[in-house]
Design a protein around this nucleic acid. Structure first.
Lengths: 337, 337
DNA sequence: TTGTAAGCGTTATCAC
DNA sequence: GTGATAACGCTTACAA
């Protein structure tokens, strides 16, 4: 037996489809008697509105896309959790799309690609470069909020931390505990991503403030921000004639990989090398040593991102806003002493 | 300017909508001249088929739902990654739904809830009890594949490891390295979930095989399978007069929480207490000590689950299959020696 | 307050 | 091989 339709309900209740629709969508001006009659027909047939038909008619799907590089990177899965929660609170569902570090795929997702109209808006945690982003802006047909990026040109809504200050704070903390040979892992020299650049800027400004000469050997790139990348970058640092006495990693799991590399080399964290990350993922509270980090307040980010996209869906002409999410230094064992 | 429709393309190419549709969907019997003419009109208008309209007509959305308790639990985010990948390979997209340990929400998701017809099938990693599952079966209107559960009654497709044997293997390994007071964390005594029960069964059978008397004090429940649950359960084990010399945890992050509790109490892993988990999440390769575990082959699980659901969508009458995923013991530092 | 009917963009059934 | 046209199930002017 196929699912009941609006018409079936109307026939059973002996009213018009219009009236049933009114009842279903909670329209105000329906007499109580009608409402009862219709409701019992709905119950009897176990009627559920067909969302696809509704969407075709209204143009609204009630679905948001969350585009992230990889769902199994803890920061993104924790962000996804918060976004799904925030979206549910205002009646949206979330479809997660993995860009998988693939620029082509990102572009496709943003410009609509082969899946037009499957969602009302996009929350986008991009890997794209500045140039690509601008180019896409021209084609993107959908409400868009950028997460984590800080490219304010008045065209997109943004929700991000102050990356430069966050990196500065982390580096400053390492200086404050007396470290001088401070390495940085996470720059992406061959890409025009804004986030790593801003973090490098913050790292360098903190060094400058302490009159520490930056050393190019201590700045290691990381193609992706995964544990293995932090591990191998740290191995290279340890192979230097003078290894660093501290490492600032541009993500927590990069830092967790770094810590393992330090111990595998027979050195200790934090005694020989202090390590700090960014993100404050739960894993860092259980690692040994526990991980010092810069906390990003993902619930805040998720809440504001969803609020912005909802506003933009309701009124596409609303002026773009830039929301700066708070961050805070969290000192744990990996930088103790 | 609103997006171009099939009709716009037809008008521009001076052909009927039928012909355009044929070209778009790659129908065979279209003359090359027609195809060219239509294609250039498509390009000129930057036409993209409206998936919602197509769905309304065909009844297929091309979307699968993946229902899991929490996306930010590593096992689930890694599973999600593999499911998304496997689904993409055969043209499906995935919408992730968090049940959040909420039975009511699970039921709603399964019976269609308020979101009928938004996806073609459901991949369900359930927390529901046996009784609920059977009850739902009656109402569920959608193709369904169960992940991780092992309730074979011929009604649902299942993809799962042999939970009992996996637990047996883990426990046996602890016995093999000479441990006798072997604790288990993860039973859920107040719930009728099958997975924990099966693991407990495997744990007990391994003990029995080694003539070790089970000790109720060494079997600690865990409401959820998060790090904090493993941590607190282990604290309770350590408070016993005779603490265990090994702990088998029903998930990896439970085990990671357990390891932290052991060290925080001034004891060592594996010297004082060996620890093993189940799942083989990446985090366990970077923890200190690295985590022994039972590996689940999530790509296998994802691949077969997606294949089954696709088969069931194509033919709802196909007989339910039970796919048993392979598992393998992985010995790392946390049980060395 | 309720009924009638047009139309959202496709695909599919019929003819030709 | 191609063209007209009727659904798919819903919302919403427009009427009554």
């Amino acid at each position: 037996m196929p699912p009941a339709t609006l018409k079936d309900v109307a026939d059973l209740a002996r009213v018009s489809m219009r009236t049933v629709s009114n009842v279903v969508s909670g329209y105000e001006h329906v007499s109580e008697r009608m409402r009862q009659r219709v409701q019992s027909a709905i119950d009897e047939l176990d009627y559920r509105p067909n969302l696809v038909a509704r969407t075709l008619r209204t143009g609204r799907t009630g679905v948001l896309a969350l585009v992230i590089p990889e769902i199994d990177v803890p920061y993104f899965s924790e962000l996804a959790r918060d976004v799904i929660k925030a979206a549910a609170e205002i009646g949206y569902r979330v479809m997660i799309d993995q860009s998988g570090h693939d620029h082509e795929r990102e572009r496709e997702l943003l410009t609509g690609g082969d899946r037009t109209m499957l969602f009302d808006g996009v929350l986008f945690s991009p890997l794209v470069t500045k140039a690509e982003l601008l180019e896409m802006g021209a084609r993107a047909s959908m409400p868009l909020v950028l997460l984590g990026e800080h490219q304010f040109d008045g065209r997109y809504d943004h929700v991000a931390i102050d990356n430069e200050r966050a990196a500065h704070d982390a580096t400053q903390h390492l200086i404050d505990i007396g470290r001088r040979r401070i390495a940085a892992i996470g720059e992406q020299p061959f890409e025009d991503y804004e986030t790593p650049h801003l973090r490098t800027k913050g790292y360098l400004s903190a060094l400058a403030g302490a009159d520490i000469e930056p050393d190019a050997h201590l700045m290691r790139p990381a193609v992706h921000y995964r544990r293995a990348d932090g591990y191998s970058a740290t191995q290279q640092l340890l192979a230097l004639e003078h290894h660093p006495d501290a490492i600032f990693c541009y993500s927590d799991i990069l830092a967790l990989g770094a810590i393992k590399a330090v111990f595998d080399a027979g050195l200790r964290v934090p005694e020989d090398i202090a390590v700090i990350g960014i993100d404050d993922v739960e894993e860092g509270q259980y690692s040994r040593p526990t991980l010092s980090t810069v906390s990003l307040d993902t619930p805040f980010i998720a809440h504001h991102a969803v609020a912005r996209i909802a506003a933009r869906i309701d009124d596409p002409t609303t002026t773009a806003e830039e929301v700066v999410a708070p961050h805070s230094l969290i000192v744990r064992q990996s930088t103790a002493g």
